Simulated assay, not measured.
Amino acid sequence: MKTTAAVSTGPAQPFTFQELELDDPRPDEILVRVEAVGLCHTDLAMKGMFPDGVAAVLGHEGAGIVERVGSDVTDVRPGDKVILSYASCGACERCTAGHPAYCVRFQQLNASGARADGSPTLTGPDGPVVGSFFGQSSFARYAVTARRNAVVVDPGVDLTLAASFGCGIQTGAGAVVNVLEPGPDSRLAVFGLGGVGMAAIMAAANLDVGQIIGIDLSDSRRATALKTGATHVLDGADPELLTILRELTGGGATHAFDSTAVPAVIRTAAQGLTSLGTLVVVGIGPDVTLDVGDLMSGGKTVRGCIEGDADPQTFIPQLVEWLLKDRFPMPEIVRTFPFSEINEAVAQAKDGSAIKPVLIMDSGATTWH
């Protein structure tokens, strides 16, 4: 069938719209009519991985309505609302242990540009197009994805608000819920208040964490963080930030989260921990130099995390439940754009004016806040 897709043809080129041929779903796949798709910084980073002239369809925070299901799919029906997430094999030791984000085939299934067997899902006039990005390539009006990638959600959920649960929001919230696990007596410092950092704050608020401190360079983002659950906010540019953080927390944060991937910020986050504190980092950036003496003397832990160490089939429904109960204030951070304005959404993501851009497949942009 034909589908209209936003195609990347190089790191410096804007997205252009093309009509492509979309493969029929195979027995274990489903066809989804995309209604909304979040724009993630991973999309922008991967755009830069392809040389000029290579056509690629990105997008990995898709959400929509199931149109068709493969012959082996028995638990999803046409008309179901689904949120699409990352791909995993479901059979390796890590997947069966409940950690599909660390699937041994993660790279192949999510970033190879094709299905696991190498076959394309998308074809253009010049041949196969790089697709199956995170198993979906949802910068398109229709997407074919494996059943395992799709999470059936409550029919009452607004997919515009929930689309980004498949990656960015899951990453921030999952890192707090599944890895850091702070409690009411904890003191959590969140460095970087983009969509991922805001998700960390929202999740912490749902865990009734005692202190939730949002740290960012932007005045407006710090103000938004207070609306999404932060108990305090600090200016990341303050030369006395470390001293202020330690004073505010009575000696240091018990938990910290970094989404900036900025080496100096990560170093500060680690130094701002109290003894036996834990820092989770989720961004990929330059190498970081940490004070090993500080880590050893304080018994501190610094670890990485992919996709919030979350199993989408169980964690996304939790996020949806919080959203439906007005306990996960996505309207404070979502800004929507018509699909046709994807390049404007990219511009606002890059300059920071949009915290969480979401593309919708009809006309008329909406600012939720």
Rank of each mutant, 00 (worst) to 15 (best):
A63C: 12
G64C: 06
G64N: 07
G64R: 03
I65V: 13
E67N: 10
E67V: 07
R68T: 09
R68H: 04
V69I: 14
V69E: 05
G70P: 08
S71C: 04
D72N: 13
V73I: 11
V73S: 01
D75E: 14
V76M: 13
R77T: 14
P78G: 03
G79P: 11
D80R: 02
K81Q: 13
K81M: 08
V82T: 09
V82C: 07
V82A: 15
L84S: 05
L84C: 06
L84G: 02
S85W: 02
S85R: 07
A87H: 08
A87C: 12
C89M: 04
G90E: 05
G90L: 04
G90M: 10
C92T: 06
E93H: 02
E93I: 04
E93K: 01
A97P: 00
G98P: 04
C103S: 02
C103T: 09
R105E: 03
F106W: 02
F106L: 11
Q107N: 08
Q108Y: 03
Q108K: 10
L109S: 09
N110C: 11
N110S: 14
N110R: 00
N110Y: 00
A111W: 01
A111K: 06
A111V: 14
S112L: 14
G113N: 06
R115H: 07
R115V: 08
A116V: 14
A116T: 08
D117M: 07
D117P: 11
S119G: 11
P120L: 12
T121Q: 13
T123Q: 13
T123F: 08
G124K: 06
P125I: 06
D126W: 08
D126I: 10
P128Q: 13
P128N: 13
P128W: 10
G131V: 03
F133Q: 11
F133K: 09
F133N: 11
G135F: 01
Q136I: 00
S137E: 10
S138G: 11
S138H: 06
S138T: 05
S138M: 08
F139Q: 07
A140V: 07
R141I: 01
Y142G: 05
Y142C: 14
A143C: 06
V144A: 09
T145V: 15
A146T: 13
A146H: 13
R147I: 03
R147D: 01
R147T: 05
R148T: 04
A150C: 02
A150N: 03
V151D: 05
V152Y: 00
V153G: 02
P155C: 00
G156Y: 05
D158N: 15
D158C: 12
L159Q: 11
T160M: 12
T160D: 04
T160F: 02
A162G: 04
A163L: 09
A163Q: 07
S164L: 09
F165G: 08
F165E: 02
C167P: 14
G168P: 13
I169R: 10
I169V: 13
A173P: 12
V176A: 05
V177A: 08
N178Y: 08
L180I: 11
E181N: 15
E181H: 15
P182T: 14
P182A: 15
P182Y: 09
